[in-house]
Each structure stands twice: as structure tokens, then as C-alpha cells.
Design a protein around this nucleic acid. Structure first.
Lengths: 196, 196
DNA sequence: TGTACATCAGTGAACGCGCGTTCACTGATGTAC
DNA sequence: TGTACATCAGTGAACGCGCGTTCACTGATGTAC
């Protein structure tokens, strides 16, 4: 963090992304422009273009960072838990926890921007959901053919809950804390007990 | 629609809101600023301030319009249907239909802006959900004490589905058309069969 | 019914701002010989 | 090891733009008498 005023910054691309994530944490999607972030990093706006073709791609990079942070949070919450149901509920719960405790990051994560296709081995919340649902299928708790449907159901449920609960102005009565457990148990019921 | 160039516009507030809704339909939340909308209505920007204290409140008004349009769509889909389950599924389905067919309006509807508290008798999607769930309770299909939980569950599910499916860049594999029925049936299961 | 006048609902020019992006440039770095 | 030079990674000034908002203003409308 020392203010070494060297002419060459070192790793400006990373610094810009980190500044963007920091900004996103506080202010959400506002202020993720070229000029503002360049100022944050004490660099002239033009320097940004050495590392990103344009402002949009910088924003996309920040969004990607936010998605990875979400995924890391979920993985950390999962830990070494082996029980398949607990794993599944933890995934949902951690997704919601992250969304509610980091609303700015969460909204930036799902910003609609040109997103670089995910690096194969980067963790993504989508792949975490998917893997867990594969496990459910392997355990015989759901039909193999239901995998996609279950993924859509589970992801929709938790994503919608976060979105609506964060938009304070709109959902005066989204029940907050203990409610999450029941929400997840309901989801679990719908996922494991549904037969066409 | 005739271009009567009278000095006094007649009903500029309405015209601005309608121009905003039109813009929202096409471009979502972008371009809902004072200057742009004033241009659309062929009026000087200053004229806007005769009707709205500032740009933010104009945007809030447009958002409100969008929410009402969603609610009207849902009510129309409900029609005179009396079967309580069909009513409930129709509410979910029409919410999703609206969201997917009018992504711009939908996103503006849930824009996070200073929203005027809803007029009591304006239809709102929230109150439609709530009424239908009251019916479920009256029919004995759910516990009375579960009303809030069920509302959160149902709304989260459909809202999340729309959000994720609309964000094309992020959810390459959200299954689209027939899938909705199964999603709703799953939801119905979780709502009516869950016991604490 | 006619006129005076307050009020209402616009105009049009201007402001300062931050934005994304382009330009020609220069200081620092690394490599070839 | 020393030097010449290409390349890399920044600077700094400038551009045109649309934004929200303020100003002093004027044309149209409606009401009192």
C-alpha cells in the first residue's frame, strides 16, 4: 500500500479491478467508469486503455471479479461438509448471505455487461450449484433428467429472494433472518419430492 | 397524437410518464433522464420541473407506471378463473410472461429509486400475490401463519427466474418455455405440502 | 360582456460537471551487441 | 560491462457530449369586477 510514485505502476490492470471491486462494494454499479477509477488509482484516464480496450470491458472485468468473490464465499461456507442435503442447503444459504451482506457487489456481479466467458477453472456460483445437483442425482434424490430444472428452480429461488429483499423500497415485508431456513427447506422439499 | 403546437401542452406530466414508459420498454433504465425525455415530448427541459421536483422523482413515477402495467397484465391473465390452484399458478405464470416479454419495463419496474408509496387502490403485483395467498389460507391449503413465508417464497421464485433468464450473458442454460410449468408446479408443491 | 391582472406553464440560453476517448508526447525498462 | 535503441507504460491537455439544474423571461389562461 505504500505510495511508491514510480512511473510504471507495476500491475495497473489488477489495481483497477481492485479499485472497481472496492467501489462496487460501497456504491454498487455507479462509479465504475474509466475516469473515476483512473482517479482512484492515481493514474491518468488514458493509462486504462493500455490494459482494457474500453470502459465496458473494464466494467465486465469487475463484474467477473464480483462473481468470483461470491463463488469463493460459497465454497468457503461449504467447507468439508459431506452430507448431501446439508451441502445443498449451505449453498443456498451462503448465496443469500453473500447477497444480503454485500448488496453492491452482488448487483455488480449480475450486471448485464459483455462478460468474458468464464475461465474454465475459475469457481462460479453456477458451477457450484450444478455440481451439488449432480450429487443429488448420484444419490438418487432427484431424477437425472431433472438436473437442469432443479438448477433453474434452486437458483431462481435464492436469487429472487436476494434481489427482492435488497430492494428495500419495494418489499417492505420480505421476512429476513430466520425466514431463510424455512425458505430453503421449502425449496428442498420441492426439489426432492417432486415427480412429474 | 396530432402535433398541435400549442404553448400549453395540456397534460405534460402524463406525456412525460408515457414517453418514459415507451423508452423503458425499448431501452430499459437508460435514457430516463430529464433532458432526454423532455426532448422526446418536444418540450424544454425546464418544463419538466413544473411537474416533478427533480429528475429522480420523474424516474420514480415511470417505475411506478411499469409496476402498475405488470399488475394489470397479471389481473387480465387471472380473468374470472375461480379454481384456487389455477389462480395461483396463473399469477406466477403471468408474472414470468410479463418479465420475459417486456424485459425493459420489468427492470424499470424494480429499479431502486425513491418510490412513492403505492396508492391504496392501484393494483400492485405484491397485493395480487398476497390476495391469492390469503385465498389459499382460507381454503385450508396453507397455514394462516405461513402467509408471509409463502408470499416470499412464491415471489422470490418467479422474480429470480425472470431476472436470471433475462440476463442472457449469465445464464446460458436457463431452460425457457415449457420449463415454466414445471417450475410453477414445483413451487406449488413446496407451498401446499410444507409443514414445519 | 369587456377589460385588468394574477397565475400558470411554458421558452431559451447558460452553468459547471464528469464522462469516454483521442492525440502527440515522454520517461522507464529491457535487450542486442 | 557499457551503450544504442526499440518497446513498453505512463502523462497531460483537449475534444465533444449529454446531463441536471438555474436564471430571467414570456405567452396563454382564467378570474374578479
Amino acid at each position: 500500500m505504500k505510495k511508491k510514485t514510480k512511473y510504471h505502476h507495476g500491475n495497473l490492470a489488477d489495481a483497477l479491478l481492485r479499485a472497481g471491486v472496492k467501489e462496487a462494494r460501497v456504491n454498487g454499479p455507479k462509479n465504475l467508469g474509466v475516469t473515476h477509477l483512473a482517479n482512484q488509482v492515481h493514474v491518468s484516464p488514458m493509462a486504462v486503455y493500455r490494459h482494457f480496450p474500453n470502459g465496458e470491458s473494464l466494467k465486465a472485468g469487475i463484474s467477473q471479479q464480483a462473481r468470483e468473490e461470491l463463488a469463493r464465499y460459497m465454497l468457503k461456507a461449504l467447507g468439508q461438509e459431506t452430507d448431501v442435503k446439508k451441502r445443498f442447503l449451505t449453498i443456498g444459504r451462503s448465496y443469500i448471505e453473500f447477497g444480503l451482506s454485500e448488496p453492491g457487489l452482488f448487483s455488480v456481479a449480475f450486471l448485464d455487461c459483455d462478460s468474458l466467458p468464464n475461465d474454465e477453472d475459475d469457481p462460479s456460483s453456477r458451477s457450484i450449484f450444478h455440481d451439488a445437483i449432480l450429487d443429488l442425482s448420484n444419490e438418487g434424490l432427484i431424477e437425472h433428467s431433472d438436473i437442469e430444472q432443479v438448477a433453474a428452480f434452486a437458483w431462481s429461488l435464492v436469487h429472487g429472494y436476494v434481489t427482492l429483499t435488497s430492494a428495500e423500497s419495494l418489499s417492505p415485508a420480505m421476512p429476513k433472518p430466520e425466514a431463510v431456513n424455512e425458505l430453503l427447506e421449502r425449496g428442498w422439499l420441492a426439489i426432492t419430492k417432486f415427480r412429474k
